[in-house]
Computed example of a mutant assay.
Amino acid sequence: MTRLRIDLAYDGGGFYGWATQPHIRTVQGTIEAALHKLLRVPDHDPDEPLRLVVAGRTDTGVHASHQVCHLDIDESTLARAVGHMKVPAVTALEHRLQRLLPTDIAIHRVSVAPDGFDARFSALERTYVYRIADRASEVDPRLRGCVLHIDDTLDLDAMNRAAAMTLGLHDFGSFATPNPGGTTIREVKRAAWTRVPSRPLVPARDDVATHGTGDARDAARVCGDATGGYVTPTLESGLVCFTIVADAFARNMVRSLVNACVAVGIGKRDLDWFAGKMAVPKREGSTGPIAPQGLTLEHVAYPPDDELASRAEAIRAVRTLP
């Protein structure tokens, strides 16, 4: 058997999450169906299940700009991907799979995984970003599928004080649901709210930027004027973004933390309430998840190749708090 690493991205808006479920469209189910078709393997073949193992399962409507999964496949089955292409089997699989998949899934790369690699258990950390357009932002309807719009101005200072409480090893039972036999204990390495600066994508004309007065140069750089021309901002200019990095995440953990921080940011809840939720890891109605469309899995980090197996072995152990 050969283990392949697959790096990919997807727009989660048209999927009921990652994990395969009968009779509904999921990311895993769509890719596995394409693999069965491409490699001419019957569905539910016990000898060649073509089962994907993913770094982090995403919920319904959640996106991934860089997800990672692995696939164990027999070498003779993999060879079927070549067909008339004069390239290695792994390269052929990458090209054919991308052409067969729908446009809301993109394959970045297919490669032979190093010894000891496990997409889920070898991962050191995952990075998620949640994007919000609040009242202080300019709402761009083109981003409605990946940005949540709220009709309030968010207090980022208060939200960052709340987010700082999540750093370190904690039981996030107030914000997450454990897997069967698992826990909600996780180690958060970074959690911060920022507003994306308004950066020009197309700068002002050189004559204004170079020769104009200080005020004129500033205006031209930020929003343009009749002399300097319109300055096109980047798509994310002005958005509020929550970036969180942890060794792993329990179900609904990120979206529930975002919802709690937003409640603090609009003044609906205070920091003492958030601290109480961190201190008493008990799930109840006030800490449910926020809407999914603003959330994207951005990155999965792995250790050096010679540490992959030991990392996978260590992370399989059920964690406890000191």
Rank of each mutant, 00 (worst) to 15 (best):
29 G>M: 08
161 R>P: 00
208 V>T: 11
318 V>C: 05
143 L>V: 01
86 K>G: 07
187 E>M: 01
294 G>L: 01
127 T>I: 07
158 A>T: 06
214 G>W: 05
46 P>W: 09
303 P>E: 10
124 L>N: 13
263 A>L: 09
289 P>V: 06
111 S>P: 07
95 H>P: 00
273 W>Y: 11
81 A>S: 15
96 R>H: 08
290 I>D: 13
55 A>G: 13
217 R>M: 09
114 P>Q: 04
74 D>A: 15
252 N>C: 09
212 G>D: 10
158 A>N: 02
211 H>G: 01
105 I>L: 08
99 R>M: 11
7 D>I: 05
118 D>F: 01
49 P>M: 07
257 L>T: 03
62 V>F: 12
65 S>H: 07
7 D>K: 02
238 G>N: 07
310 S>L: 09
49 P>L: 06
309 A>S: 07
39 L>R: 10
225 D>P: 02
112 V>A: 14
227 T>Q: 15
104 D>T: 00
91 T>S: 13
117 F>P: 08
317 A>S: 10
97 L>N: 07
119 A>S: 12
291 A>N: 08
61 G>Y: 08
229 G>C: 01
237 S>D: 06
161 R>F: 00
306 D>P: 01
215 D>T: 11
272 D>E: 13
295 L>D: 05
75 E>N: 15
77 T>H: 05
27 V>N: 11
313 E>K: 11
192 A>L: 14
240 V>N: 03
24 I>S: 08
60 T>Q: 14
255 R>I: 03
222 V>I: 15
158 A>C: 06
133 A>P: 00
178 P>Y: 06
203 P>Y: 03
261 C>R: 02
236 E>A: 13
166 T>F: 01
139 V>P: 01
179 N>P: 00
35 L>T: 06
290 I>F: 15
129 V>L: 13
281 P>E: 15
206 D>E: 15
297 L>N: 06
98 Q>K: 04
80 R>A: 10
287 T>H: 01
25 R>Y: 02
294 G>A: 04
227 T>Y: 07
48 E>W: 04
148 L>W: 12
250 A>S: 15
311 R>Y: 01
262 V>G: 01
13 G>F: 02
112 V>E: 15
131 R>T: 04
229 G>P: 04
60 T>W: 00
263 A>Y: 09
63 H>R: 04
141 P>V: 13
258 V>E: 06
239 L>F: 05
320 T>K: 12
63 H>V: 06
277 K>I: 02
11 D>C: 08
141 P>L: 12
14 G>L: 08
110 V>T: 10
140 D>S: 03
199 R>V: 14
197 P>T: 11
106 A>S: 13
195 R>D: 05
22 P>H: 07
29 G>N: 10
2 T>M: 10
181 G>H: 07
189 K>M: 15
191 A>G: 09
256 S>Y: 03
236 E>Q: 12
292 P>W: 00
38 L>R: 12
160 N>R: 05
83 G>T: 08
97 L>S: 03
150 I>M: 12
261 C>Y: 07
